[in-house]
Design a binder for these strands. Structure first.
Lengths: 212, 212
DNA sequence: CAGGATTTCCTACACGTGTAGGGTAACCTC
DNA sequence: GAGGTTACCCTACACGTGTAGGAAATCCTG
């Protein structure tokens, strides 16, 4: 039996890397085709060309696989979140552009993200994403206030401190994203960015003011 | 076999009311004791003194039961959300008080809400709650701008229009609530209200400004 | 109270889940 | 390459899910 909880990516063994990749790819394919709640472990394993018991050697359930399989994509998304502008830059072109990139990325994998964030999705994954966004927002705010460049926060554990503004902001972004995806992306990413930026910017300003 | 999708509360038949109540009460009990994901339909049915197949006569799964069983409680929560103040009322005592009531209600059923909103919770229910909060926020904003008293929005269907600020705000509140509950409510409801109100208020102001 | 209509319960079935043990083959290290 | 290690696969089992049909009890209606 395999040792469970292998601490992720640069797994020494070639076999492990292959099954991890195969399972992740299979899940992403399947989730584009149907609701996450309809996907059985047997489905994923078969699509990946792997036995069902091998799946259990690596993950406890589909949500756990989804968490690790999508972390890279999620982090890409989060990376395109705009930092708070220096101060009241009303048009704020670069921030809006960042947000547009955010919504564009969402739209490009709309099927995937809708399945994960929507009502048939995974509360676990949503929680995971909220933590990561909150951590990013936390860094943005403190970086903007102190002026320091934080040391990149590598693959560090997302031990968010209890930062109310950060989780507030993170929840808000998830809410907008989930709702937009669920309605089938009726507005363009640019429109969404234009509508969202004033709200996000307002939160940033409150945070900066409260922090000092 | 029973006709599925009976349109809820004032169900004529005495038997139906009894089983609905028994199932709802049983679920709420169980969810205070353990994670939602560990609760089987057989558990709920047994606790309610009802057969498993009767459960399926009324609900498709545990999440659907949770949705209807908690709607009343949820609506109570939403009712205590503060409306936007007339304009910049910085201390805004009544708004903060409303928010404190909101967090106090959450804390009173902390076990329940944590199980429902947390990582082991129900994405369906979270989606449902977000829609309801968004609808309430939507009404608040338009009421504040137009000055009208909307006609109470009785048990009406939560057909939220695509209102970005509303879902943004709704997501934010859910994010704060979920995070706070998950950490075991480390701060008092009053502290949470004090921390949250500036953020919420800022969003209200942006919305009012954008609307005119 | 009789009537019909519904709800409730029982049984049964095909599947999915999660766990366990052990055989085989692939891998890394030396 | 030979070594031990470890991942992979197979089998099997206990349980939960969701569906279906039909018997019996309960209810609303007139």
């Amino acid at each position: 039996m395999a040792t469970i909880r292998d601490s992720t990516p640069p797994s020494g063994d070639r076999r492990v890397r292959r099954t991890h990749a195969a399972l992740a790819s299979a899940l992403i394919q399947l989730v584009e085709e149907q609701d996450l709640s309809r996907i059985s472990i047997a489905d994923v394993a078969e699509r990946a060309g792997v036995s069902r018991s091998t799946f259990y050697d690596h993950y406890r359930d589909v949500h756990e696989l989804a968490e690790t399989a999508c972390t890279a994509m999620i982090d890409g998304l989060i990376g395109s979140l705009p930092a708070p502008g220096p101060d009241s830059a009303d048009p704020a072109p670069e921030a809006t552009q960042s947000l547009e990139a955010f919504f564009t990325s969402l739209a490009q994998h709309a099927g995937l993200y809708r399945a994960l964030l929507g009502p048939q999705g995974s509360a676990r994954l949503v929680d995971h994403i909220r933590r990561r966004i909150a951590a990013a927002v936390h860094d943005h705010i403190h970086q903007a206030v102190s002026g320091d460049d934080l040391p990149e926060r590598a693959g560090s554990p997302p031990d968010t401190p209890h930062d109310v503004p950060a989780v507030f902001t993170a929840g808000a972004l998830i809410g907008v994203a989930a709702d937009w995806l669920q309605r089938g992306c009726p507005r363009s990413p640019a429109e969404m960015a234009t509508l969202t930026w004033p709200l996000l910017s307002a939160l940033y300003h409150v945070d900066a003011g409260t922090l000092t």
